[in-house]
């Protein structure tokens, strides 16, 4: 069982959260020319690294806020959690 510290609510069990994927993926800027490659990188291509991974979670059964989590994908250790609008 993962224990995730929601920056709004404190330490909660994994059951209250829903996973949102890689937090480093950036949507190409609006109103600018977007190459196919940029769009593919946004929609499909993922590094999915072994080790430290920055990812989005939503505290869906709690405050319903999106948060950012830095977690090790090999050991599941969680290093840091921040609000969605903060840098991790």
């Amino acid at each position: 069982m993962l224990h995730i510290k929601c920056p709004h609510c404190g330490m909660r069990s994994q059951n209250e959260f829903s996973y949102g994927g890689d937090a480093t993926v950036k949507r190409p800027e609006l109103n600018k020319e977007v190459s196919d490659q940029d769009w593919d990188n946004f929609v499909y291509n993922r590094k999915s690294l072994r080790g430290k991974h920055k990812e989005l979670w939503q505290h869906i059964s709690g405050c319903r806020q999106w948060i950012k989590v830095e977690r090790d994908t090999a050991t599941h250790e969680i290093f840091k959690t921040v609000k969605a609008n903060e840098d991790i």
Partner: peptide, 10 residues
């Protein structure tokens, strides 16, 4: 995302 080859109970 995980490389752990072992899962969690939930």
């Amino acid at each position: 995302n995980s490389y752990a080859q072992r899962g969690n109970l939930p």
